[in-house]
């Protein structure tokens, strides 16, 4: 046997093993992470319809998006409204639910029920709600009619479509955030609460002065992941409204998808995707900075 034998068992020493174990992940990182990012950065400076070779046009795509494409700016605004809506409603609601859930009995039952939407595929969620909301025979408007309220046309009315989409998104993600929060609550040392109670602190004060500060790492995690998810989300909107009516629910990620695979403006779509990525980075950094000030050093 020569010393350079290619016997795999011999090559796998304590020094080389970690690198070999990481080969699949590193290869994947090259082909399906670094390469796509580089390719779409390049494409964002070109004009490309996938049929003929890309043509270099410098920063024209970015200029177009910000100066001559009012719809792009409208979708950015829609994304902001959607994100503020789902985070502003979804996070406090799931925190409240986690608070009562973690002190209740029959937790397995509650958990099963609240998990149903999050394990359901988004197409089914979209259509299930389409049936509930679709006017005039949707079950929600029938119920509203029973108590004497004329329900709106929800998905067909530009003034209510975004509200409906936000409601459905919150419904879909409520269980997941509730479980995250209750895991965070479970990790808090119960003796701290006991000590405060013995000292005579009321439940509200215990919540504000003890529970909330100790829950900060979980809150930070849920906030950041919720915001990133919301900014880059479009699957539910694609199923529920396709961005309509009159673009009232057209968010940037959905707009980019249509730009790429319907209009075949792949260069401009790549530029828009990078703009959205920068937005996500800035918002995440801002959140980290603001919330870290409160003493969250876990991240």
């Amino acid at each position: 046997m020569s010393p350079l034998s290619l016997n795999p068992a011999k090559m796998l020493t304590q020094k080389t093993a970690p690198y070999l174990f990481l080969v699949p992940v590193l290869l994947f990182g090259l082909v399906f992470f670094a390469l796509p990012l580089a390719a779409s950065l390049y494409l964002s400076f070109t004009s490309w319809n996938s049929l003929v070779a890309p043509r270099w046009i410098g920063s024209a795509n970015y200029e177009h998006l910000f100066t001559r494409d009012p719809l792009f700016l409208k979708t950015l605004l829609n994304t902001l409204v959607f994100t503020v809506g789902v985070v502003g409603i979804g996070v406090p609601a799931s925190l409240l639910l986690a608070g009562v859930f973690s002190r209740s009995r029959y937790q397995a039952l509650w958990r099963s029920i609240y998990s149903l939407p999050m394990v359901t595929n988004v197409v089914a969620v979209g259509f299930i709600w389409w049936f509930v909301l679709a006017d005039p025979w949707g079950v929600l408007n029938r119920f509203l009619a029973l108590i004497g309220i004329a329900g709106p046309a929800w998905l067909n009315d530009p003034s209510t479509a975004m509200i409906a989409v936000v409601m459905v998104f919150v419904w879909m993600h409520l269980g997941q955030n509730m479980l995250l929060f209750s895991a965070g609550l479970g990790a808090i040392d119960e003796s701290l609460h006991e000590a405060a109670r013995i000292d005579g602190a009321g439940e509200a004060r215990i919540f504000w002065s003890i529970t909330l500060p100790l829950l900060r790492p979980t809150i930070l995690f849920v906030l950041i992941t919720s915001v990133i998810t919301a900014i880059s989300y479009f699957a539910l909107i694609l199923v529920l409204t396709e961005g309509g009516p009159v673009n009232s629910t057209n968010v940037t990620a959905l707009y980019i998808y249509g730009m790429a695979f319907t209009d075949l403006r792949l260069g401009r779509a790549s530029a828009a995707a990078y703009v959205l990525l920068v937005v996500i980075f800035l918002v995440s950094l801002l959140q980290l900075r603001v919330l870290r000030r409160g003493g969250v050093e876990a991240y």
Partner: peptide, 30 residues
């Protein structure tokens, strides 16, 4: 413990932030 471990570890954490929509176009053509 090996050279580059912390770098890879940090990369794995940061890479999770990149949303999937960014990859749809380039991956399709790859």
């Amino acid at each position: 413990r090996f050279r580059g471990r912390n770098l890879i570890l940090r990369f794995v954490l940061v890479a999770q932030i990149f949303p999937f929509f960014l990859f749809i176009i380039p991956m399709f053509f790859i």
